[in-house]
Amino acid sequence: MNELKLKEIDITETLYYLGFKGTVPEPPIMTAIKKCEAKLLDTIKPQYVIKISDIEEDSHPLIVGNDIHDLLSGCQKAVFFCCTLGSGVDRLISYAGAFDISDQLYTDALANAAVEQVCDMLQQKIASDYPEFELTMRFSPGYGDYPLEIQPEINRFLDAPKRIGVTVTDSLLMNPTKSVSAVIGLKKRGMF
């Protein structure tokens, strides 16, 4: 199965999402964050789906806008992926909110950090699966002029609802909310 395992969550990223500007919060807050991390690690079930297209000849229907064209210029392949922490995370966040808004806030920030970590792990996996290629940065709908409206198309292309249970609402929200879809370009090493 396309599952990934996360052992701990990046605390620096988490504090950044919580708005601590480089300061370390007092012990009670750190303890509370650690407690939320344990629960979150119990709940998350990172999964992904990947499809790789050759993009040298034809134009690709999912590559729309100047920014993404610039990013992929010189690339031979485009990797489309979608990953998610699973629907349990959204419920964990809501449930925490019924008791303690602080826990809800921490869990949400931890989950944001976690989904980025999952993206990083995936990126590393792609790099090791394709050693003869260099990777561009990952680029998601909503960045620059890459329209958010492409989100449902990418989702369909990846068969994400069937494969990992990710859907996109009419208002273009991803469900589960802690999910990311993105494009990464692959460029043959030593070319250009």
Binding site: L18, G19, F20, K21, E26, I29
Partner: peptide, 14 residues
């Protein structure tokens, strides 16, 4: 004033 951050405000409120 930026001396305290959101989590601290919320913890106190809570």
């Amino acid at each position: 004033q930026g001396k305290l951050f959101l989590p601290q405000l919320i913890m106190a409120a809570n």
